[in-house]
Amino acid sequence: MSAGLQVWNDALTFQIDGSTPMVTLARKGTAASQGTDFPTNGANAFCLVRIPISDGEILAVDCGLPFHMTGIRNGAAEFAILGATSTSMDYWVFAPHTDSGIRFGMKVFSETGALIYDTGRPPMRVAGTVEGVGTFGGFPTGRRLALVVWAQHTYIQRRVLVNPIPNTGFTSVSGNFARCAQDGTVYISPDTSYAIYQAALSGSTISFAGDWDNGLQNKYTVADVTGM
């Protein structure tokens, strides 16, 4: 780095580099649930939350209840939240730094004159990562934690019956659910069924059986969003 600024904290963790754009908070908010897309006959209660997201942005979420990211469609990340038919989800969107418009504070520029960072936007704080299923401790206590979902396991099972009514059956959706706690613990559940569309389950003959497994290993970044 021939120009700019380098900042390290007391744990010798690199924080700001005058040659690399910082990832900072672009926006935050709370999204209300929007109901469910299909019946939940026989499955756990859940609701859906959708949060707008653009390419190149990093979305961290927390709602106090277990959640599963169903995917991104029509410009929004969609989450199934377990154990509620109506709730809300807090979110923080991080992105490469853009000018916050501050009139006082500090600005850092690269050797080419590009704005790298200014104190009008808080930088993303990474507390760690978790993978797999189970209980993961050791994160800061008394802090507000949120999760960035990079990969999450999903399994869909479909059965079509011919007796007693042709072309009836069920589709079951399950996946791993995640939750943060203020005691510095992250919980990742085993596969849990959260949506079942069903009809004529008394049928005895299966004409079609199809299973889909995305084969993904759960992976999350744990972000410390305290004070943001």
Rank of each mutant, 00 (worst) to 15 (best):
Arg121Ile: 04
Phe104Met: 09
Val160Met: 14
Gly142Met: 08
Leu145Cys: 08
Arg125Gln: 15
Gly134Trp: 00
Pro96Met: 09
Val133Tyr: 08
Thr119Cys: 14
Arg121Tyr: 05
Arg103Thr: 15
Glu111Ile: 09
Ser110Thr: 12
Val108Lys: 00
Val93Lys: 02
Gly128Asp: 02
Asp99Val: 01
Trp150Val: 01
Gly120Ala: 08
Val126Gln: 13
Val133Trp: 04
Thr119Phe: 07
Tyr91Cys: 11
Leu115Tyr: 07
Arg158Leu: 03
Phe109Cys: 06
Val149Arg: 07
Val160Ala: 12
Gly132Tyr: 03
Tyr117Ala: 00
Gly132Gln: 06
Val162Glu: 14
Ala114Met: 07
Gly113Arg: 09
Tyr117Met: 04
Ser100Gln: 10
Val130Arg: 02
Thr141Lys: 15
Met89Glu: 02
Phe104Trp: 08
Val133Gly: 04
Val133Ser: 06
Ala127His: 03
Gly101Pro: 11
Trp150Glu: 12
Val126Trp: 01
Thr154Asn: 01
Gly134Cys: 04
Val148Thr: 00
Arg125Gly: 00
Ser100Gly: 14
Phe136Gln: 01
Arg144Lys: 15
Ala151Gly: 10
Leu145Ser: 07
Arg143His: 14
Trp150Cys: 06
Thr129Arg: 13
Pro96Ile: 09
Gly128Ala: 07
Met89Asp: 00
Asn163Gly: 00
Val133His: 05
Thr141Ile: 10
Phe139Ile: 12
Glu111Ala: 15
Gly113Tyr: 06
Trp92Ala: 01
Met106Gly: 08
Pro123His: 01
His153Val: 00
Leu115His: 06
Ala95Thr: 01
Gly134Ile: 00
Ser100Val: 09
Ala151Leu: 05
Arg125Asn: 13
Tyr91His: 12
Gln157Thr: 02
Val130Leu: 10
Lys107His: 04
Arg121Leu: 13
Pro96Arg: 08
Tyr91Phe: 15
Asp118Cys: 12
Asp118Thr: 04
Asp118Lys: 08
Leu145Ala: 07
Gly134Met: 04
Asp99His: 01
Asp90Ala: 15
Met106Phe: 13
Gly120Trp: 01
Arg144Ala: 15
Tyr91Gln: 07
Gly120Met: 03
Phe139Pro: 06
Leu115Trp: 07
Trp92Tyr: 15
Asn163His: 09
Met124Ile: 14
